[in-house]
């Protein structure tokens, strides 16, 4: 109950902290010259799904959800803003064959990206991610091995637009290769909202 209340009132409490917004927006919406590494974090959440897949013919992907947490990193004297982040995307897969189990895939990754430093509310970013593609098979349907995991790398493109201070909407396409044998290839799509916050002091302490 308290959690629901806290979540429901979170945006209004956030908007009330005007000084917080001024600082954050100054850091993130201006050119890279004013960006300091690890000063802010951007939290993105939204639903995602698989547009196309290869070598997973016996299963149908359903709609899942994911999140990414990113922080800026200054790339020398370049005008681009670098970003480091971690994230995950969970997708349930339904088996087409009753003899094979359904499974839930959780793609956990770290990523690096470069983002346009535009003053314009629309920003483009692209990057690479690497992580683990974890698959948990339903033990109710078959006996035997229930978990599999393998390295996955991805290339992604994202477009996002600021529509209210630190709130942005984004759309993302991610082409992922999972290095199983045979290799799995996906095109993942995700849309959602992101919010930029001041980074906690401990993050700067650890990261710097």
């Amino acid at each position: 109950m308290f959690l629901c209340l806290w979540a429901a009132t979170f945006p209004s409490r956030l908007l009330a902290q005007s000084s917080f917004f001024e600082r954050s927006s100054a850091l993130y919406s201006s050119t890279s010259d004013s960006v300091r590494s690890f000063d802010t974090i951007r939290l993105s959440v939204g639903p995602g799904s698989i547009l196309t897949s290869r070598n997973v013919d016996g299963w149908t992907p359903e709609t899942g959800a994911g999140f990414v947490i990113q922080t800026p990193i200054v790339l020398g004297s370049t005008s681009l803003v670098g970003e480091l982040g971690i994230g995950a995307l969970a997708i349930p897969w339904t088996s087409k064959n009753p003899s094979r189990p359904d499974f839930l895939s959780i793609h956990m990754f770290i990523q690096g990206a470069v983002s346009s430093p535009s003053h314009h509310p629309v920003k483009l970013s692209t990057g690479l991610s690497a992580g683990n593609y974890f698959m948990s098979f339903s033990s109710n349907q078959v006996a035997g091995e229930r978990k599999e995991s393998e390295l996955a790398v991805a290339v992604f493109f994202q477009i996002r637009r600021t529509f209210y201070r630190q709130l942005e909407g984004f759309a993302e396409i991610r082409t992922t290769r999972v290095y199983t044998r045979p290799k799995l290839d996906f095109v993942e799509a995700k849309v959602g909202l992101s919010i930029t916050l001041n980074a906690p002091n401990w993050l700067r302490t650890v990261a710097e």
Binding site: V56, G58, S99, M135, E148, L151, Y179, T180, R181, L184
Partner: peptide, 13 residues
């Protein structure tokens, strides 16, 4: 170090 090539879903086929 993790070397790739685990079977993934192919373990059921």
């Amino acid at each position: 170090t993790n070397e790739t090539g685990d079977p993934g879903p192919a373990i059921y086929s």
